[in-house]
């Protein structure tokens, strides 16, 4: 975890209202200022998650997302703007985050997570907020989080359903414990309202904030299932796979 960094008078003014949160305070804010988070990708889920983390003052954000803004991004990818159609998504995201909070260090990487960049990108941060639309990317980030002893906040949605869980290697099941292989039914395109991906994003962001600032009770060994069609929220216990090829060695 990063080293807490002292606040400036400007920081105190900016974060005053959240520092009133019991259990957080100025010490929590200093931890956030010293922390770093990778968000991949920065779409319907990653955009609002990154925006919340920037607003809350996480000191360094690494945003990874390839491609250019398309009209079909704009119903949910809130860091993309109409005037940026056809231009790189990551540039739009970084620009919007800097507009919101110019005191942060924000790095844009115009790539999605892949075999050749996963170790390096995960290595740059304390925590990964997983907002990728492909299981290959999610399992790669999980592998690197476990190998490097980082933290993974896993957020996902489909249609009107969403779920969030937090992985701390050696303390909780990892993603490969939960699904060791890519599920056969998953399709790259899926039904999505921005309000659904944004719900998962805000819950993921507050999970990241709690873990980084060490307060509250994160979803460790638990998965929050959210059915927004019926407004049903359930917290389920998830289990570690004792034969998990990714994290088993941490438990021996």
């Amino acid at each position: 975890m990063g080293t807490p960094r002292p606040l400036t008078p400007e920081d105190r003014a900016r974060y005053e209202w959240q520092m009133w949160t019991p259990g957080f305070g100025e010490a929590g804010q200093e931890k956030l200022k010293g922390a770093s988070v990778l968000i991949s990708r920065c779409g319907g889920l990653g955009s609002p998650a990154a925006y919340e983390l920037a607003a809350a003052g996480v000191g360094r954000l690494v945003i990874a997302h390839a491609g250019n803004v398309k009209p079909s991004d704009l119903n949910r990818q809130l860091l993309m703007t109409h005037d940026w159609l056809g231009k790189p998504r990551v540039e739009s995201a970084v620009r919007r985050l800097r507009e919101l909070n110019p005191t942060l260090e924000i790095e844009g990487v115009p790539e999605n997570i892949n075999e050749s960049n996963a170790a390096e990108l995960v290595g740059r941060v304390d925590l990964v907020l997983d907002a990728a639309p492909l299981f290959e990317e999610r399992l790669l980030m999980n592998r690197e989080v476990v190998a490097q002893g980082k933290i993974l906040v896993e957020c996902a949605m489909y249609d009107m359903d969403a779920n969030v869980t937090t992985v701390i290697p050696g303390r909780t099941p990892c993603l490969a414990c939960l699904f060791p292989e890519k599920p056969p039914a998953w399709k790259r395109q899926f039904p999505v309202f921005g309000g659904v991906s944004g719900t998962a994003a805000c819950i993921g962001a507050i999970e990241a904030i709690k873990v980084l600032a060490d307060f509250g009770q994160p979803l460790l060994g638990e998965m929050l299932l959210m059915d927004l069609r019926h407004m049903t929220f359930r917290k389920m216990k998830v289990r570690r796979d004792p034969n998990c090829p990714v994290c088993r060695r941490l438990w021996d």
Partner: peptide, 10 residues
């Protein structure tokens, strides 16, 4: 009994 096929929408 609840059945969940993992989600990856982002």
């Amino acid at each position: 009994v609840t059945f969940l096929a993992p989600l990856a929408g982002g």
